[in-house]
Amino acid sequence: MLVYVIRRVGYMIVALLALTLITFFLMKQAPGSFLTINIMQSGLQTSGHSSYSMDVLQEWSERYHIGEPWYMEYWGYLKGILTWDFGTSFQYPNTPIMSLLVKAFPISLGIALSSIILGLLISIPVGIFAAMRRNTWADSGAMFFSMLGTSIPAYILAVFLIMVFSLYLHWLPSMGWRDLKNYVIPVLALALPMTGSMSRYMRTSLVENLNKDYATTVIAKGGSKRDVIYRHVLRNSLIPLITIIGPHLAGMLMGTVMIEFMFGIPGMGQLFNNAAGSRDYPLIMVSTFLYTLVIMVMNLLVDIIYGLLDPRIRRSGMSD
């Protein structure tokens, strides 16, 4: 197990390095630079002093290795990441990137994680319910509603939820970012569409395991259906479910962007969107790195949990 984790961390480092390199090139490939875009949108060009852009360019060139060979510029960013000293962004030269991230990142991550947890908390019972009554109307009904959830995009669901919980019931605020109440609709809007695929996955996995001899054995030995589900089948059925959490999380971190815009939530979505749109290279590099790091760490954790749940993987050293 330890060997496995160490090897995985090794792969992660290589992948992260490759990713920073790819991000760097894609970023440099995108037309325009912060300077030209900032000049266009901040009114710099109309400010009347023609030497301004040259001064600023000079200053930035030194700070961010602009104009030097690409590997020097890349190394500038990489060094920042390696030393965990991210420096400052183009847009907010007075504020360390770290302090921007410290504010925004926990918000996005919190929303993404709570959505996934809520998604699981809903999907698992629904999946069990459907699997225990498989091929009955209850099963079809549960699966129909979960499919409905999947086919509705989060932002439309969000509007629906606002209408129900804010306009009609007056329970929850329709936007903003003040207290726990503000979490509810965004998290629901992200979690519910997820339950569609998750509960189907859960159901399929349960049915598959229920059809295995060991499940029949429990009954044959006098165990109850509850014994079958909760003591044996559930645990084995959760294993495949856990494997899809990783990809869901990656999707979720992207999905939060739209929801953050809709609810005016000051998370990574706004930060990254602004960074990309204005070619704020340092902020793009750092936030992409951080996103990837979180997704990779989450995937690693998922795999470790997977191993803990499945002795076949735990003992054989997770060779694959």
């Binding site: 301004y52 001064d55 847009q91």
Partner: peptide
Amino acid sequence: VKGTSKASSFLG
């Protein structure tokens, strides 16, 4: 405005 990446509010 030096070091702010912003322009002056005095647009001229």
